[in-house]
Each structure stands twice: as C-alpha cells, then as structure tokens.
Simulated assay, not measured.
Amino acid sequence: MTTITPAQPPDDKLPDNFDPFEHLQKIYIPQHNALVKRYFADLGDDWKPNIASSRSALRVACTMVDNDNQLMMNLRHHLLFDLLGYGKKDLGIFYGIPAESFQESVDGRPQVFLYFSQDSASVSEGEKKVEAEYSFRLMNETPATMTPVKAIALAKDIKQQFISGGQGVVFTKGKNIYKYYHEEHGYRLQVYGNTEVDTQDIITRLLKCQDILYDENRLVVSTPKKASITNQTATQLVYGKQKKKPRYRPVANVRFRYAYMYLRGNERPIYLVDATGRHHEALV
C-alpha cells in the first residue's frame, strides 16, 4: 500500500519558534467569536463579560479567549454549535421530499409555520419533548407579491398573538383532535388538544394573525376512547432489547417558540418571530 504524505510547507516559510496550536488558535478564535457575536446580536455590539442574565452568561461561556486550551475550545464550540443549535440554523426543513418539490405540489401561496415545544424543566426523565407545529397559507399573496414590509407586518401580528410578557404563550396538547378548515383563507388546522376551550384559544390566535374571525360551526371534534398515555411504563421487545412503548397522545403544556415562512423559490425559511434567541435573523 502506498502511503501519501501531505505536502509540508518549506522550512524557510515558518519561523523557528512556530507553534502549530498557537497558530491555529490565532486563526480559529476570531472566526468562532465572530459567530458568537452574531448569535448574541440582541445583547449589543459593545459588551464586557458578565453573567447577570442567562443570555449574557451563555455568551461568556461560548466566547473563546487566548489562554483556552484545546478542551476549553472544544467545549465552547460544542455549546454554541450543538447544544444551542447554531450548527443547525441554516438547515432546511425536511418534508420527506426536496423542499422545492414539496412547494410544487401545492398552489404556491406563502406558508407560515408556528412551532411549539414543551419546556425542558417539565420533560420527564427518559422522555422526549412534546412538540407541535401548525401552519396556514397567505391566500392573498404569492412569492412575487410578498415583500419584506408585508412580512414584518405579519411578524408583528404573530408576536402580538403569541408572545406575552416576553415569553411564548402556552397551550395544553392532548389526545383529542380539533379540526378547523377555512380553505378560502388558507387554514386546514388539525390541533391535538386537551380541552375545547384551550384549543379554541390557539385556533383563534392563529386566525387573528390574518384578522379572521373564529367560526364555531367550522370546528370538528374527534375524541378517541383510548386514554392518553403521558408517562409510559410499559415496554416492548425491539431488536433484542426491552424499550419503552411509544406514548399515546401525551398531555403536556407546549410553548410557542418561533414562526417562519416559506416562499416558493426562496431556498431558506424566513424567520418571522423568535422567542428562543436562536434565530438572530428573525424579523421580530
């Protein structure tokens, strides 16, 4: 087997006291910290390290300094890119088919998505967060007529409906299915809720994003006989190992996190509102 040795720069191109790790730090740290600055842009450009708030404490933890060793650099990188999700921020939403093909399968009207998830503190050990995502279409717009000005106005309406006291509003997800169709206005909602009152509140907020009134005659409720399973204890044999059975429509509070819009012809989602601090490019 032939061994290929990477080409090394001539010795006379490097100083006698050249330290590869120190050189890497000088190149890497400014690049990494530039991403940290962008991610925490909401805290301002001029800042001194402080841990007075959770956001500023995270920024201090992510920021690399000259005397960091390799372990510290790795930990700071892992915190920013993996735990806080910066490395995933530009990934497209996966539909099972390419996004462009998905958009071609519908009429091309802009589609707005609102994402909800359970607070980490309320997730039982060994379970995944309960999530929810609902969407509607802007039937009076097309990719050609949609503009940044209109998007900002929509973002402000979503913020008004789904942000309260600086946090996303909460609703209780459950086993019952509440369908609300108003296709002329772009709504085909299917909400898993716990009570009709709670679910009606969320549906009404979604409608108000386009200044549309709630019509109780359009609501169809499906209540399964099977009981909801929130805390699963039963197991099943999977590939030679005992694993927990899937939960059945668990009851859990989910909080609004962010909203984004897809336009046909636009490769990346347009983030409208963000209550997580992860999407610095969000319009609101």
Rank of each mutant, 00 (worst) to 15 (best):
H279Q: 07
Q25I: 05
T230I: 05
V106G: 13
S53W: 00
K245G: 10
K241P: 03
G87R: 03
N194C: 09
F113E: 09
D119W: 06
L114I: 05
Y248T: 12
L114R: 00
V221E: 06
Y192A: 12
A34Q: 10
T63G: 10
R137T: 14
H182T: 10
Y95D: 11
L83P: 01
M73A: 05
L237A: 09
N17Q: 10
V60D: 10
Q236I: 14
Q236E: 15
K179L: 01
D42F: 11
V238N: 08
A259E: 08
K13S: 12
T204W: 03
P9A: 14
N176L: 04
E133S: 15
M261Q: 02
I177K: 08
V123M: 02
F102P: 11
L206C: 13
D274I: 14
Q25M: 01
Y248G: 04
K150L: 10
V191W: 02
R59D: 09
F256Y: 07
F116L: 08
K150Q: 13
E141P: 10
H78F: 15
F81R: 09
G193I: 02
I229H: 03
L114D: 01
T5M: 00
T5Y: 01
T276Y: 11
I203R: 04
M139T: 12
V36P: 00
H78R: 13
V170Q: 07
S135V: 01
D12C: 07
K175W: 08
K89G: 04
Y39F: 05
T223R: 02
G174R: 06
S122A: 15
H279K: 07
K88T: 05
L43I: 07
Y134P: 02
K159N: 11
I158Q: 01
R278M: 15
I51L: 05
R268P: 00
A121Y: 03
T195D: 06
K26R: 09
V123N: 01
N194M: 04
S120V: 12
Q111G: 07
G193E: 05
D90T: 01
K225A: 14
A144M: 12
A155C: 02
I177T: 14
H77Q: 02
D211V: 10
G44C: 07
H77V: 01
A57H: 06
K173N: 07
E184H: 11
K226N: 10
Q70S: 15
Q31W: 13
T233G: 08
E141H: 09
L283W: 11
A99G: 03
Y248A: 01
